[in-house]
């Protein structure tokens, strides 16, 4: 990794008077940099939205053929009851998959870090499983889960979460396996010199070294988990909704106006099938837009979390 550290004056003397390099790399040209960084993408997105609003009617497309931004917003308002509740289920499906997938992946990579035999044994299998197309996961998993008593009568819902788990698992497994190995060899020698135990080396060196890798993976997998949940819901039309189950069991029938009952809803993926059969195109666009916004929100949260937890690497 290239170090972009600003060198500062080295001469001895009152060190406290030396400036510490918190200066932005751009220095004086920061106004131009800010425009490039924030204004340009906003302008591009603005132009895109404007075209979306203007072009379809100009070329004679009606809202039932290609809804404009305005039609989509209207659709969002009309169908908000359905979209909002479905969104909460998709959110729960995606986050359950995201958390379970990442925790399993970190544990797997930890095992690999402790035992190169385990890595040799399981890594090829992990790659083989990853080559299975995501569309096949959902029906495959619901068939497998159907036989497992643990999931009772909700094997389809479990399959949805399973898709999100599988889709998040591999990027993090690969990233963390590399991350645990990407340590400063000198610091590793220092730890050996100090007779550090394997666990000390793991906790004090390998794990923190892998954090930047973890966050690149979290940013990818938080997006993928929504894709996995949507595809899963679309394919099997069920919802596991573990958070909803817990909430409704605890007596919370609704939160912020959204129902928490896990069996009455099918998530945005399922809703899209219903909207499709109704030929409610503004509704479909609205559902897609809602999931996009939710995904962007969580991506942003990962970026923020990275800045907070990996400040030494998150400057770029």
């Amino acid at each position: 990794m290239a170090e972009t550290v600003k060198e500062i004056d080295e001469r001895p003397g009152p060190l406290s008077e030396m400036p510490v390099s918190n200066v932005s790399p751009a220095g004086g040209a920061s106004a131009v940099a800010l425009i490039g960084q924030y204004l340009l993408p906003v302008v591009v997105i603005g132009i895109f939205l404007l075209m979306w609003q203007i072009v379809p009617p100009l070329v004679g497309l009606h809202s039932y053929e290609l809804p404009t931004l305005g039609d989509t917003i209207t659709g969002m308002r009309d169908d908000w009851g359905d979209i909002g509740t479905a969104l909460m289920v998709t959110l729960q499906d995606a986050l359950a998959g995201f958390v379970i997938g990442n925790v399993l992946a970190i544990l797997g990579a930890t095992l690999f870090s402790y035992s190169s035999n385990a890595e040799r044994a399981f890594y090829p299998l992990a790659i083989v499983v990853q080559t299975i197309p995501i569309l096949v996961y959902a029906p495959l998993l619901s068939i497998i889960f159907f036989r497992l008593p643990f999931f009772n009568n909700n094997s389809q819902g479990a399959a949805v979460v399973g898709v999100a788990v599988l889709i998040t698992f591999f990027p993090t497994l690969v990233n963390m396996t590399v991350g645990f190995k990407t340590v400063d060899p000198r610091v590793l020698e220092l730890m050996r010199l100090l007779n550090a135990s394997r666990t000390q080396i793991f906790l004090k060196l390998r794990f923190p070294s892998a954090l930047p890798f973890l966050f690149s993976s979290l940013k990818i997998t938080v997006t993928l988990s929504f894709v996995g949940a949507l595809v899963g819901e679309y394919m099997v039309g069920g919802a596991f909704n573990p958070i909803g189950t817990a909430l409704s069991d605890a007596g919370w029938q609704s939160v912020l106006g959204f129902q928490t009952n896990p069996f009455s809803l099918e998530g945005v993926g399922g809703l899209m099938q219903i909207l499709y059969s109704r030929l409610d195109k503004p509704g479909i666009f609205a559902a897609v837009l809602a999931v996009s916004m939710m995904t962007i929100l969580f991506f942003g949260m990962m970026v923020l979390l990275e800045r907070l937890l990996v400040p030494w690497r998150a400057q770029e």
Partner: peptide, 17 residues
């Protein structure tokens, strides 16, 4: 000579520091 820099991270220090 780094008494006042105890709370700085390495990326905030120069090579010599």
């Amino acid at each position: 000579g780094l008494k006042d820099f105890a709370d700085k991270r390495p990326d905030q220090l120069s090579g010599g520091m």
